[in-house]
Design a protein around this nucleic acid. Sequence first.
RNA 1: GGUCCGUUCGUCUAGUGGUUAGGACUCCAGGUUUUCAUCCUGGCAACAGGAGUUCGAUUCUCCUACGGACUACCA
Length: 465
Amino acid sequence: MNPRVRFSPSPTGQLHIGGARTALFNYLFSKHHQGKFLVRIEDTDLERSKKEFTDQICESLNWLGLEWDEELVYQSQRIKLYHEAISVLLKSGNAYQCFASKEELNKIREDTGSYLYPGLWRNKDQKNVALEIQKGTPFTIRLKTPETGETSFDDLIYGSITVSHSEIDDFIIARSDGSPVYNLTNVVDDYDMSISHIIRGEDHIANTPKQILIYKALCWTVPIFAHLPMILGQDKKRLSKRHGATGVQTYRDEGYQSEALLNYLSLLGWNPGTEEEIMSLSKIIDQFDLLKVHKKSAVFDDKKLNWISGQHLGMQANEDILIRIRLIKPNWGKTESNDFCLSVINLMKGRSKSLLDLIENSVYYFQDPTEFNEKVLRKTWKDDTSNIVESVHSILDSMEIWNAELLEDTLKDFMESNELGFGKVMKPVRLAICGRVNGPSLFLIMELIGQSTCIRRINKAIGTF
RNA sequence: GGUCCGUUCGUCUAGUGGUUAGGACUCCAGGUUUUCAUCCUGGCAACAGGAGUUCGAUUCUCCUACGGACUACCA
């Protein structure tokens, strides 16, 4: 099987987590089966579609690494195709012009309580139609849907779904300005692009029977459908802007890496059937099976994303992390050598959740600390501390070889011979050097940032506190 | 309101007509660590409810409740 699938965002906003998941599952399915992954921009809503969003969506997809295999398709450039389909439908009697106004329809809806179009112009004779056209009355074009029977399809994920035709009205396929509507353009494009599997959000299930009716009216083969469960926010409501960080770019800017985000997303509604959770994209592609995707929607959990992100970071090569950091902070660590930066990364990657997390917690490797937490300071720097640190200072000052091992031996000797506890000595020293009381092994930090820097910072602390 | 869909720890999930219902995240406790984080060990925590089928249902069927999607001249 060499499926052709597509991700079809509408450029009315940036790519969000839900869209990214849809794109990902399309991508995974196509790559698992050596198929093609395409992207189509659904920009037929002229009022809301914006070029900047198209750019933003593409940028996000690129960042995620979900590259499409053929040229981008823009619906706005294929109007002719839609008009051809509409005219075929009109000619074959599968569609008709409807001259009812919005007001008229709204009134009927209010009166009857039914939202279904009652077929006002379904069987009007040519005379009436000609008269309205002569008058210049605006008209929409509706599909003439069957009145009896039902439409059903086998969803790869949801199984068999059946809807009675009595629930499907003669819906609009072209607006009064002549422009085609989503259900029509979608079908025309999927057919034209030879899409074999339509993988999209569960919110499209209700559209599917309508689209199938269009396929049939056009005598086209109906593709295979697979609807993905929704991703919800913590409040179990569908993910949207009010849930804060839902844009893919926000995650990028917060220092998450695409592999981690993709890994987490892949585990929402799917799992490989093993207990493995940390996986590379190629491993996920390898394991992926659309048939094992759930029907149940999943809640997006930042905590687990953080964990997965941290796991990826911890396993990643230092060089690679440096490249990624420079992508979001081009000047990071530029005051020091590459080796120095790599050492910082090596010390910090195991304890960081994201690139940004790593960056923010590594400031003291590059700059003398300037801000000290008042409470921590009071707890750490006691009356006799300055004297102790003074002694440490002179020991450090006299050292001729500077490495972690020697530092540890020397300072331990000092503590033992003076019967001082580790915390009493090393905590204030750490505070002086790092501006905080936690972090990796202080001896390793001291070795890395060097003798003169350590002494300068300790000096400053003694003078200040 | 109508149509469609869903329901295993707080969250992501595994699983079976008979299991101590398993794992992961979070949280808590202990250990390791100069500190914090990591790491290791342990712990808390779930089959929505009610009928039915059955010797036996979390698992099969139905009903109810709850949740969601759709119900546009948006996509």
